[in-house]
Design a protein around this nucleic acid. Sequence first.
DNA 1: ATTCTAACTGACTAATCAGTCGTAAAAATA
DNA 2: TATTTTTACGACTGATTAGTCAGTTAGAAT
Lengths: 187, 187
Amino acid sequence: MKKEELIISTALKLFVENGFHGTATSRIASESGVANGTLFNYFATKEILIVSIYNSIMKKMDDFIIEGIASNSVSKNAFKSLFVASLRWNLENPAAFQYMQQFNNSPFAKSAISKTLKQEEHPLYVLIKNGIDLVVLKPMPAALVFSLFNAQINGLYYYLLNNTIESERTDELTEDTFEMLWKMIQD
Amino acid sequence: MKKEELIISTALKLFVENGFHGTATSRIASESGVANGTLFNYFATKEILIVSIYNSIMKKMDDFIIEGIASNSVSKNAFKSLFVASLRWNLENPAAFQYMQQFNNSPFAKSAISKTLKQEEHPLYVLIKNGIDLVVLKPMPAALVFSLFNAQINGLYYYLLNNTIESERTDELTEDTFEMLWKMIQD
DNA sequence: ATTCTAACTGACTAATCAGTCGTAAAAATA
DNA sequence: TATTTTTACGACTGATTAGTCAGTTAGAAT
């Protein structure tokens, strides 16, 4: 692993465990196996490191979601594949997920403009917009449906996180929860 | 205002603005108009202060929600009143809401056991449990429905937060969103 | 082999911070 | 009023931290 990536992954783990200010840059460096000064060769300040990790996660997430697109047609299946892809990413990357939560609710969030997909460009947003235009979905503000869709994913995610469920049952619940969501948003 | 309350409200504001470790106890004290040492008379450590604020918000929130209970019967209206009360509390206390988010996604979250309503005792959870037993709601795990219910509130809240909406339209959207939720969870 | 360059190193520093403590004011009690 | 108890004060400290920098290393280029 390249040093830069190594620092990012160590920092991600430590930030989630101890918080941003609770994690000393010296600790990140030593646990990454690099010298103190090396960290600052890659990231001029701690804040830049924190925002870089955010952008790095965002990119991976967006790539994963985009891969998960089953079709460009406005079909129930298209929504379902995005629902499942989003949920799976959260389940498979809980540390990254929590990093995002921590970051988004921190004062650093405002420093993170751009570099990441704007809401109106997000595949799910586009799909929802088309769905509403084509009267497949209820006539509501697309941004609201987008927000509710993501909220539903989070709701299911937190349930699965706090209750130990076998993976077979997880799939079943994912199915059921998506059906509920679909019943809710379809026209 | 009592000094203790004064410190709590100042600290709440500063923690939301600058993060937990980004806010010096000395700054909290001086902005509260009390001496440095006085703060530590009320809260032995910074961590105790942070957790105390959490508990203080939790209590106010629970009280507000409990007040919002329209009836003990398992009716659509009972669910709606809890939905509306929860949402309204968030909208009227955005700083406190963000504090909770920040806290729950921080390493301090684990220190916050007890003092606060357990999930199974939460009025909404009880209502959902009864709703499922009485076949008013879909036969799903009560904890999942609870999680989805709260997620829906958050989804709507974030939409309203990020899009400036007149209060009249807010009520309308709240109404519509609850109807969607109800369609989703009812049997 | 020698030079050049870019990455790397870690001891160091100036600043900051959580928490202490001896003293003083204020409040309660007698 | 006199005495005791509680609350408030703020200068101080030991510990920690983000970031620096003068020098080293390793490998590529000549």
